[in-house]
Design a protein around this nucleic acid. Structure first.
Lengths: 204, 204
DNA sequence: TCTTTTTTGAAACGATTGTTTCAAATAAAT
DNA sequence: ATTTATTTGAAACAATCGTTTCAAAAAAGA
């Protein structure tokens, strides 16, 4: 069988010995805890148990590694959302699931790190165009997802039509960010559940 | 006339030659733009035109200067709020004024720095106990102010009583933080005005 | 086994980090 | 004018920053 390697006869090299996902997970924990500017290369070397040269060889730079970490973190949350949404019977449950997942993260965030994406947005959007771009995509994707759910709920007459689905989506997106910021200091479950109920009341 | 100096005969020293408020203002701009960890002592020397030794002599440390900057920024906003609230006829207008002031800041925040207090909360609450303490005080004060307004509005029958004033206060506090986070990337005035209207609708 | 290509380890890079030092300059009271 | 307490300027501090270098180790095809 003909392939690229037999054609030009390339010898295959040594391959990465570490598990890339495990390394990304360790790096995520550090960046999440300390933020981008608060994290040093030494922190990453210590956390991943990788040599500096291996990190640079495999990730290019601190910023590049951070961008991969962001995507890693984001896709982890997307999977959580997708799984939660798949188990929802209707649009109302879908929205409530999204807020409940965020509430759950807040209640388990013992060291008050907050949401890494929210943190990064506030730290870096005005400093790194690559982060600016990432956050705009993130916002668009989140709002599109929310708009989709609201739209279905409005067709099912579960949600009212006093505002467009697009307007409600921005409102929900904003409310989630507010919830995450509030949840950094306030971990009272009853308070937060009530806050979520108040947020969602306008939809019904 | 007897005073402390004539009693023990102390010679008065050279006094600070710079205007402390002006220096704090310059430092605030840097910290706001770059965040705490993103700001270096050299940045502060450049921005304030003060010598390093003068900064350390007058502010003690980078963290100490930042804490003063935070208070400076906070009191500036409090004055804005107080002025806005003083011009409000009733509780409904008072709440709307608070959101309008935030909207205005967002629309004038051309370089997407966001709110410095929100930024600092997400960057440092889990790293510096002094910041943690500051933010808890800030939250308590904000929520107390909001609760006060809501409470009055409920007595005047302008706001409903489906939730307690305390619960609505937390909801409004959370919504403001969400608005500030959303406003980093979304500067569309109509979108944000509509978002605010949706937030406030639940009160009426 | 030999060759080739890449990863890895260890050391070092210049630049910058927050902070300190100390003599010189300075302002107010004597 | 002298004394005294403090600020200021310039230089330097050790430590750490993100990144680079390069020889040695290693993996896979020939």
């Amino acid at each position: 069988m003909l392939n690229f390697e037999t054609l030009i006869s390339i010898k295959m090299p040594k391959v990465e010995t570490f598990n890339r996902n495990e390394v990304l997970q360790k790096a995520t924990e550090v960046f999440h805890k300390k933020g981008y500017n608060g994290t040093s290369m030494q922190d990453l070397v210590d956390a991943t148990a990788l040599n500096r040269s291996s990190i640079y060889n495999s990730f290019g730079s601190k910023l590049n590694m951070f961008l991969e970490v962001l995507s890693h973190y984001q896709s982890y949350h997307n999977n959580n959302f997708s799984q939660g949404l798949a188990n929802s019977y209707n649009s109302k449950e879908a929205i409530e699931t999204i807020f409940d997942l965020n509430l759950n993260e807040i209640l388990h965030d013992d060291d008050r790190k907050g949401c890494m994406i929210v943190n990064c947005k506030s730290e870096m959007v005005n400093q790194e165009t690559s982060i600016h771009y990432f956050m705009e995509k993130n916002q668009d994707r989140m709002i599109a997802m929310l708009e989709d759910i609201v739209s279905k709920g409005q067709m099912e007459k579960i949600f009212n039509q006093e505002q467009t689905a697009s307007q409600y989506a921005l409102y929900l997106f904003s409310s989630i960010q507010g919830l995450r910021m509030t949840g950094i200091l306030n971990k009272n479950k009853e308070d937060l559940k009530n806050l979520i109920n108040t947020v969602l009341k306008v939809l019904y």
